[in-house]
């Protein structure tokens, strides 16, 4: 095998010139991150997804998005399903900024309450509201209205 061929085999996802790398996503959540970011509809650039990569703390997913930076609302939503994720802003192939997602204490209009009889799931003019807490690496969302707790499959309840 030539050196060039070996390099081709090693290169799974190429570095991006400008954009965002979301690293340390909980394994299996990369496609939900794309759903939150409404990709492909919301991005023109190339998007790369790595799933089940080896990380320092076990398996992880990574998403690389060319030509796009995330807003606060998007990062808040990602933190709910990938609380250990890091957001890397890339300019000219270099990491300009790297920060861990911050889990908000409170979210509004982000997740639908799982209780079908909750007042927030009716025609009333209110947004869903949740207090956010974490317990042993799990995110718990407690509805401000009916107090029902969402602790699993949060991605399924995203609005």
């Amino acid at each position: 095998m030539t050196e060039n061929t070996a390099a081709k085999h090693e290169l799974r996802v190429r570095p991006i010139e400008n954009g965002t790398v979301i690293d340390h996503i909980s394994a299996g959540q990369a496609l939900n991150v794309l759903k939150i970011l409404e990709i492909p509809g919301s991005s023109e650039g190339v998007v790369s997804v790595v799933m089940n990569a080896a990380g320092a703390h076990g398996k992880k997913d990574v998403v690389k998005i060319e030509g796009r930076e995330l807003n606060v609302r998007e990062v808040d939503r990602i933190s709910l399903i990938a609380p250990n994720a890091t957001i890397n802003i890339i300019r000219n192939f270099k990491v300009l900024q790297k920060k861990k997602v911050h889990i908000p204490e409170y979210i509004e209009g982000v997740v639908r309450c799982m209780n079908p009889n909750c007042i927030s799931n009716t025609m009333e003019p209110v947004n869903s509201k949740f207090d956010v807490t974490s317990e042993k690496d799990r995110i718990l969302l407690r509805c401000k209205y009916c107090e029902r707790v969402i602790s699993e499959n949060i991605a399924e309840h995203l609005l």
Binding site: N115, N117, C118, I119, S120, T122, E124, V126, C143, K144, Y145, C146, E147, R148
Partner: peptide, 13 residues
Amino acid sequence: RHPKEGSARMASE
């Protein structure tokens, strides 16, 4: 008194 959970909290808003 209302059939939906969380109705009183919403009403207070």
